Simulated assay, not measured.
Amino acid sequence: MSLGSRASPGFYTNTSLQEVGIKGESAMLPCTFSSRTPSYNGTIVVIWRTKKAFLGPLIFQCSIMNSTSGNHSSNNCTEWDRETHRYRLVGDPRRYNLSLQIRNVAYDDKKFYYCRVELRNIRGESWTDKTGTNFTVVARPRIIRLTLSGNVSVGRSLECVVEGLPLPSITWVRPEKNEMPTPEETKYAEQDQIQSKLSVSQNGTYTCRAQNEYGQDAEELHVGEKPSETQRTIILLLLGLLLLLGLGIAAVIFMHRRYKGSLACWKVTTRDQMNPANTHHNGPSEVASKGKSEDSCTYADIQFSPEEKKGNEKRRTPIPTKEDVTYATVVTQTKK
């Protein structure tokens, strides 16, 4: 703590020359004062500026009523500022504490901060810290991305990009659990990022680990035959579709063969030798035909011929034969 500037006899303040905030977290800038009038009744005004003590940007201002009667109706110092909602007092000015809270610290918060207090009911009773508090911002390590590039034929490599301030040290853990410092590091244009690459020589789980004085972070990536959950789902779906397709093809082949083997192909011809008027038929006339080619058909020639009785004999008209054709002869008689 350092002694602040004196505004009037017996009126002093103490501030911190150096404070550190962690990115994304809350920080406090301490500031206290003392007064020669401890029994002061009236309004206390608190002001915080950056960059310059008197003319710098105003980031926070509040007022509170100090009264021995207990009337503290005027108090907006514990509320977040209306513009950014990031600043408020964590100290109580009635107890000489002007400490400021900054939430969600960012790199842009790195600057000098100055506190000021005014006792409005006492003329000239005010004080401004002319030294200021130098506020710096650091960051815990955070792995931004861990990716695999290349393939087996041209070579594979892992890339680990890490955020942190001070810049973290990076350690790789190979599948055989051997730890090794990063073989190659590249600093990014950003002040808080660093990149590390590692050649991949075998399948397995690789770990990128980053560490600085404010913390550490680690991330794993599996390289090789172990598919991810999404990949496993896609593979199972493809296998299911292939199985259904195979079953469908098998069913079609089975039905085709069964249908082919059970077809009966008939070609029926008639010859009417009883009525000369039917001689306009030039050879057998087809009555019904279905199925396949003639080579696989069974032919049935149905002939109608008159009975010529010679005793008990019946005359049959001979049927011409043909190679590779099976004939079934059906002889009918007319009723008397």
Rank of each mutant, 00 (worst) to 15 (best):
residue 251 A to Q: 06
residue 40 Y to P: 02
residue 135 F to S: 04
residue 264 A to W: 02
residue 47 I to T: 15
residue 168 P to N: 09
residue 256 H to W: 11
residue 320 P to K: 11
residue 165 L to V: 01
residue 83 E to W: 03
residue 299 Y to H: 13
residue 33 F to G: 13
residue 197 K to W: 05
residue 256 H to N: 12
residue 120 R to G: 00
residue 36 R to W: 08
residue 334 T to P: 01
residue 250 A to V: 04
residue 258 R to D: 05
residue 151 N to S: 13
residue 5 S to I: 00
residue 246 G to W: 01
residue 91 G to Q: 08
residue 203 N to C: 02
residue 31 C to H: 10
residue 104 N to W: 05
residue 305 S to V: 06
residue 147 T to V: 07
residue 255 M to L: 12
residue 334 T to G: 08
residue 286 E to H: 02
residue 207 T to M: 06
residue 325 V to F: 07
residue 23 K to F: 00
residue 141 P to D: 14
residue 93 P to V: 06
residue 186 T to S: 13
residue 227 P to V: 02
residue 234 I to G: 01
residue 81 D to S: 07
residue 163 E to C: 02
residue 317 T to H: 08
residue 272 D to L: 10
residue 139 A to W: 01
residue 26 S to R: 12
residue 110 K to V: 00
residue 223 V to Y: 07
residue 85 H to I: 02
residue 74 S to C: 02
residue 95 R to N: 13
residue 117 V to C: 13
residue 184 E to P: 00
residue 330 V to T: 04
residue 187 K to I: 09
residue 313 E to S: 03
residue 186 T to E: 14
residue 165 L to S: 11
residue 327 Y to T: 14
residue 111 K to G: 01
residue 325 V to P: 00
residue 253 I to L: 15
residue 204 G to W: 03
residue 94 R to G: 06
residue 122 I to L: 14
residue 290 K to D: 04
residue 241 L to Y: 05
residue 264 A to M: 06
residue 195 Q to S: 15
residue 222 H to Q: 12
residue 232 R to N: 06
residue 55 L to G: 04
residue 161 V to C: 07
residue 323 E to M: 01
residue 83 E to A: 07
residue 225 E to M: 04
residue 64 I to K: 08
residue 314 K to V: 08
residue 53 A to Y: 12
residue 318 P to V: 06
residue 310 K to W: 00
residue 221 L to A: 09
residue 144 I to R: 14
residue 280 H to M: 07
residue 303 Q to W: 00
residue 277 A to R: 12
residue 66 N to L: 10
residue 32 T to L: 02
residue 224 G to S: 11
residue 238 L to T: 09
residue 267 K to D: 12
residue 216 Q to K: 09
residue 219 E to W: 09
residue 215 G to N: 13
residue 159 E to P: 00
residue 128 T to C: 07
residue 96 Y to I: 01
residue 203 N to Y: 04
residue 284 P to A: 04
residue 278 N to K: 15
residue 150 G to K: 12
residue 28 M to A: 05
residue 131 T to K: 11
residue 265 C to T: 15
residue 189 A to P: 03
residue 277 A to D: 11
residue 135 F to L: 08
residue 139 A to Y: 00
residue 277 A to V: 01
residue 227 P to E: 08
residue 208 C to E: 04
residue 85 H to P: 00
residue 167 L to C: 01
residue 133 T to S: 15
residue 294 E to S: 11
residue 79 E to S: 10
residue 19 E to V: 13
residue 141 P to V: 10
residue 280 H to K: 10
residue 284 P to C: 08
residue 11 F to T: 03
residue 310 K to D: 13
residue 324 D to C: 03
residue 34 S to I: 05
residue 50 T to L: 08
residue 20 V to M: 15
residue 118 E to F: 03
residue 293 S to K: 12
residue 12 Y to N: 08
residue 191 Q to D: 15
residue 267 K to H: 08
residue 37 T to Q: 07
residue 253 I to W: 14
residue 4 G to F: 00
residue 69 S to N: 14
residue 254 F to G: 11
residue 320 P to G: 05
